[in-house]
Each structure stands twice: as C-alpha cells, then as structure tokens.
Amino acid sequence: MRVIHTDTIIQAVSEMCIEANCYLGADMESALKNAREREISENGIEILETMQKNLMVAAEKKIPICQDTGMVVIFLNIGQQVQIEGGGLSEALQKGVEKGYQQGFLRKSVVSDPLLRSNTGTNTPAIIHYNITEGESFKIKLLPKGFGSENTSALKMLKPAEGLAGVKKFILETIENGSPNACAPVVVGVGIGGTMEKAALMAKEALSRPLGSHHPADHIQSLEAYLLEAANQLGIGPMGLGGVNTVLGINIETFPTHIAGLPVAVNMGCYVNRHVEREL
C-alpha cells in the first residue's frame, strides 16, 4: 500500500497548469520548426514565424502562450494499491486547478451553466477521467483545452459498410472545415471504435500522445501517415490563410466495437496542443 497526501496532489496539479500554459513541449516546438522550414506560402511563413516568436516571449516573461488557457482535462491513472490521505481525491484535483489558475495569472474561462453562462471565477470544474490500474502508480496527464479548436471537433456514428473509406472521408472533412478556426497547423486526435463516449474519450487522450509516436498496429499507422499527407495537401495552411502546413500530427486510438457500429471521433487541437504529464 502506498499513501499519497492530497497536498502533494494539489501542488503537482497547480504547477502542471502553469507549466502547460507557459512552456511548449519539446515535441510541439520541433514540429513547428519543421513546419516553418517546409512552408512555401508568404502568409504561412509570416504566421509560423510569429508563432515561434510568441513562444519565446511566453517563456521569457513566464506568461501564457495563448490567452485561452483552456478548460482543464485530466487523465488520472491510479494504481489500486494507492491510498489517498488528507481528503477527497477529486476535490484535491479541482483545488490544484484553482490554485494553478490563480497563482499563474491564467484566464478563467469556465461558466457554471452552459445556458446561464456565469463565470465560476476559478476555472473549475476541470473534466477528470479516472483509470484504475494495478500496483502503486499515480500518473497525471493534464491538457488545458482551448475552445477555438475544441469547437471544430466532431463525432460521427458511421455504418460498418462505410469502412476505411468512410473513416478517411469523415476525418478529412472535419480537418478541412475546422482547421482555420482551430489555429492551424493543428494536431488531430482520433478515436475509432468503442461506443459514442469511448470514441470521444480516445480522441481526447490521443492529443496527449507525443507527436511522432505511432499506433502499434500497422494498418492504423498507415492510416495516420495517409491522413497526415492528405490533410497537408488541402492547401489550408497556417491559420487557414494558405500553405502546405495544415496538420502537424494525427494520433489515432482504437478500441473493439459492436457488430453494428463504427464510431469515429475527431478532437481538434491547436498548434500549441498543450499537454503535460507527471508521475507522483
């Protein structure tokens, strides 16, 4: 049995909120650098260079890369041998988010009711997904999700007969319609299979996979490669103003599904695609 105190969790989560918002991950930084080298459009070059300048200013001044510091999504992998001391686990995660957004001068973007829309002032609640594992591990993955990109995401319950061609068509359509508003060049998380909510969840978690990592199955790896190539031929380019960089990476996750179904979820992430993880 391993004991973790809620104070440790609160502190870790608050630091992760600030880290994710102010410093870009190494995978994203090199993807942007490569994009700049490949770009041939004048608008695209100016935009990609501005994006890179912005990252430098954010790190230097320790201020958020983007003013939309997002709604926080947490994937928590917790071993069944872990015991939490000091209070409730969910409460600790929420307190960590509140503390991070307060201390980091991050924007509070959460409204308490989707229709009445008054700001909670704390950027909570965060969306938390728990995954129980064996052993004593405690791993937090945290994604502050901006809504410029989130709003362009889509889910479709395809017919099995639509098959691979239908999957490709739906994903490329979503990218084509969504990339300009999603702050292209985008990162695309895809979930194929499961049920409706499982597909959406896989698409979200796929955004936390480092760029350049691949699905273990050969046919899904080929699909990732095909979609990346096809999306970058759409001409949409950085911020949708023309160019050869529309997508920086496509991460696909899959799961067994029902004989009658082929759910596909596409979660769009902007070019900063903030994601951090920490093992306590």
Binding site: M51, K53, V57, K61, C66, D68, K108, C270, Y271
Partner: peptide, 24 residues
C-alpha cells in the same frame, strides 16, 4: 495569429477598462 497571446501582450502599451467590468 491565433494563440500568439504572449507576443501581442508585449505590443500593448496601455489598457483602460471602458465598460462592462462585470464581464471580467
């Protein structure tokens, strides 16, 4: 450029609240 919030912050020389303070 979307997301270039830090760079644009550095180009803002003054900021004055004009109306609707309650909207944060």
């Amino acid at each position: 450029v979307g997301g270039a919030g830090a760079l644009f912050q550095s180009l803002i020389k003054s900021s004055e609240l004009i109306a609707y303070e309650d909207l944060g």
